[in-house]
Amino acid sequence: MSDPLIRDSDHYVVLEPGQSERLLSAADTLVWLQTWLQSLDVLPEDLQSQNSLVAAAQRLLDTACELEVGQGLCLQWFAVRLEPPGSVQG
């Protein structure tokens, strides 16, 4: 079971084959996943029951950290916290 604090993360490090790692906001990560899902010929079986690409991308963000987009090619994303919980900004 995933840590509930991960769901509170505002940023993700995303990794694509042949690209440098990038830091994206949660909203941008969701769009990034939607774009990749749209490029697939067939959605993974566990996402086919979702009623939209937005819902499928959100499910991935909530439950996984990897998506195979081609034979041996995987996307990965990892939640990161830029500021410790409860920190006060000056």
Score class of each variant (00 low, 15 high):
Ser2Cys: 07
Ser2Glu: 09
Asp3Glu: 09
Asp3Asn: 12
Pro4Gly: 12
Pro4His: 08
Pro4Met: 13
Leu5Cys: 13
Ser9Val: 06
Ser9Met: 09
Ser9Asn: 05
Asp10Asn: 09
Asp10Lys: 07
Tyr12Ser: 00
Val14Asn: 00
Leu15Gln: 01
Gly18Met: 09
Gly18Trp: 08
Gln19Cys: 14
Gln19Glu: 11
Arg22Trp: 02
Leu23His: 03
Leu23Thr: 06
Ser25Trp: 10
Ala27Pro: 03
Ala27Phe: 14
Asp28Gly: 04
Asp28Ala: 05
Asp28Tyr: 08
Thr29Val: 03
Thr29Pro: 01
Thr29Ser: 02
Thr29Cys: 10
Trp32Lys: 03
Leu33Cys: 06
Gln34Thr: 08
Thr35Pro: 00
Thr35Tyr: 02
Thr35Glu: 05
Trp36Phe: 11
Trp36Ser: 09
Trp36Gln: 11
Leu37Cys: 10
Leu37Trp: 13
Leu37Met: 12
Leu37Gly: 08
Gln38Cys: 10
Ser39Phe: 13
Ser39Val: 03
Ser39Asn: 11
Val42Ile: 14
Val42Trp: 12
Leu43Gly: 04
Leu43Arg: 13
Leu43Ile: 05
Pro44Gln: 01
Glu45Val: 06
Asp46Tyr: 14
Leu47Ser: 08
Gln48Met: 15
Gln48Ser: 13
Gln50Ala: 15
Gln50Ser: 15
Asn51Thr: 14
Ser52Leu: 01
Leu53Ile: 09
Leu53Arg: 03
Val54Glu: 04
Ala56Glu: 04
Ala57Asp: 00
Ala57Gln: 02
Gln58Ser: 12
Gln58His: 14
Arg59Asp: 14
Arg59Tyr: 15
Leu61Met: 15
Leu61Asn: 02
Leu61Glu: 02
Leu61Phe: 04
Thr63Lys: 01
Ala64Ser: 10
Glu66Ala: 07
Leu67Asn: 00
Glu68Asn: 05
Gly70Val: 06
Gln71Asn: 12
Gln71Asp: 04
Leu73Glu: 00
Cys74His: 11
Gln76Lys: 02
Trp77Val: 00
Phe78Trp: 14
Ala79Ile: 02
Val80Asn: 09
Glu83His: 04
Glu83Asp: 04
Gly86Lys: 10
Gly86Val: 06
Gln89Asp: 03
Gly90Lys: 14
